[in-house]
């Protein structure tokens, strides 16, 4: 996993990523407040402002997903690998559901940038849940330290 460390960004890119994500979230809330239906967000090919919300979010998620932890050791690498597996399983299930049901035609029209967002989102969530669970288990074992 040592070679993988090289391609990761420094840890502070997580903060920059979070700022990008908050920016897109703010734009989303502002757009929703202007009276746009939530379904409109799936049909944005004519509205560049909707596209920019996804684009900023995907950039934010990318920076969060590919930034190092403050101490990037082999346990973190192990959790990253587990998260990648979880992400692959969830995304495959997503595609299976769409492929073997009447929703197939909707997948064809589904914007790729939304799929990118969900991919990064599942990865970030599963990775940080695992880091959180590790820290809880760690605290539970502090009594034996």
């Amino acid at each position: 996993m040592k070679s993988l460390k090289v391609i990761f960004l420094p840890w502070y890119f997580k903060i920059i990523g979070a700022i990008f994500f908050l920016l897109s979230l703010t734009k989303l809330i502002l757009k929703l407040n202007s009276g746009v239906s939530i379904l409109y967000f799936l049909e944005f090919d004519t509205d560049i402002s909707i596209y920019s919300i996804y684009a900023i979010a995907v950039l934010g998620f990318f920076l969060i997903a590919f930034s190092k932890e403050r101490l990037e050791d082999e346990l973190v690498s192990h959790l990253r690998k587990k998260s990648l597996l979880i992400t692959t399983i969830f995304h495959s299930l997503f595609f299976f559901v769409f492929t073997f049901t009447s929703l197939t035609i909707q997948l064809i029209n589904f914007p790729a940038i939304i799929l990118m967002n969900t991919l990064f989102f599942i990865y970030i969530i599963s990775f940080h849940i695992q880091i959180f669970l590790e820290s809880i288990k760690n605290k539970n074992n502090e009594n034996f330290d």
Partner: peptide, 28 residues
């Protein structure tokens, strides 16, 4: 030694030492 101290010597996190000790993680 404390877990933190061993972790610092081996240049890993305290979580890693804890996970190894409790058998939750097999080290490389």
């Amino acid at each position: 030694l404390k877990q933190e101290e061993l972790a610092a010597i081996l240049k890993v996190s305290r979580q890693t030492i804890n996970a190894i000790e409790t058998g939750r993680y097999l080290p490389s």
